[in-house]
Amino acid sequence: MTPEENFMRKIENEEKIEPKDWMPDEYRKNLIRQISQHAHSEVIGMQPEGNWITRAPSLRRKAVLLSKVQDEAGHGLYLYSACETLGISRSEMIEQLQSGKAKYSSIFNYPTLTWADVGAIGWLVDGAAIVNQVSLQRTSYGPYSRGMIRICKEESFHQRQGYEAILALAKGSEGQKAMAQDALNRFYWPALMMFGPHDSESAHSAKSMTWKIKRETNDDLRQKFVDQTVKQIEVLGLEHPDKNIKWNEERGHYDSSDLNWDEFWSVINGNGHCNRQRIEHHVAAHDEGEWVRDAITAYNEKKRAKSAQNAA
C-alpha cells in the first residue's frame, strides 16, 4: 500500500490523522489555511466585543463579557497550537495575519455601534460559529478535532449570555427594543455570510470534503443556522430581518433570501468598515508586547547562565 493509499484508507474508515502520520502536502496546506484562519478569527474577534468592556451597562455584564473575551484568547491559543503540529511556527502565522496573506472571519470587520451589538454577537455570531464547530468536531485531523471538542464545551455560555443580554433589551423600553432590533438587522446577514460562499463558489470545499477536513457543506450549515434562528427571533418578539423567510414543508427547512454576495466579497477583499482598524490594532498590540517577550528571553538566559555557573 502506498502512503497515499494508506492515508485515504484511514480517512475512509473515519480514523483520525495524527501529526506524525504521512499526509499529502495539499492536505497539510489546506489544514494550515483553515486552522490558522480559525485561530486568527478567535483573536481578532476579541476586538469588537472588547470595545464594550469598559462601557458594559452593569458590573455583572462586564464580568461576563470579560470572561467571554478571555475565552476567545484561549480558543485562539488552542487553535494556534493545533496548527503548529503541522510544522508552521506561531511567528509565521502572525506574520501572515498582519500582512493580509491569511484571512480571518469577515464578521469581525463590522463595527459594534451599541450595547445591543454585544448581545447580537454572542447570540448570532457565536451561534453560527457553534454550528460550524460542532460539525468540525468530526474533522479528520486529530489535534483540530480535539481542539473543537474543547472549544464547543466552553462556547455554549457565549451564545446564552448574548441571548440573555438581547432578551433583556427586547423586553425593555421602546428605545431598548429598537436597539435590539437594529442590532439584529445589522448582524443577521453577516452572520449568515460566516458560513462562506455557496458550495458551487467555494474554492476549497470539494477537496476539504473528500479529505473530511470539513464534514458538512457551507450551504447545509447555513441552512441549519437559518432554521434554528427563526424561533429565537420569535421568542424575542422582534421582527425577522428576512421578509422572505418561509417554512417549506416539502424540504423540511425554511426558505430564505439570497445574500448580498457583493458585500461578502467586498469585505473579504479588505473594504469592510473595520478591516484596517483591526489589523492596525493587532500590530500595535503585538509591538507593544515586545518588551514582555524580550524580558522572558532575558530572564531565561540569566537563569541558564546562573545554573551553568553553579554547576561549574
Binding site: 461576563v64 446564552r160 449570555q161 432578551l167 434554528q228 424561533k231
Partner: peptide, 19 residues
Amino acid sequence: DKPYRHATYYVLPDPVNNM
C-alpha cells in the same frame, strides 16, 4: 466565584433553552 462561565448560569425561555 465566576459561575457565569457556565452555560447553566443563564436562564432562558423554554422554547430556546436548547442553545
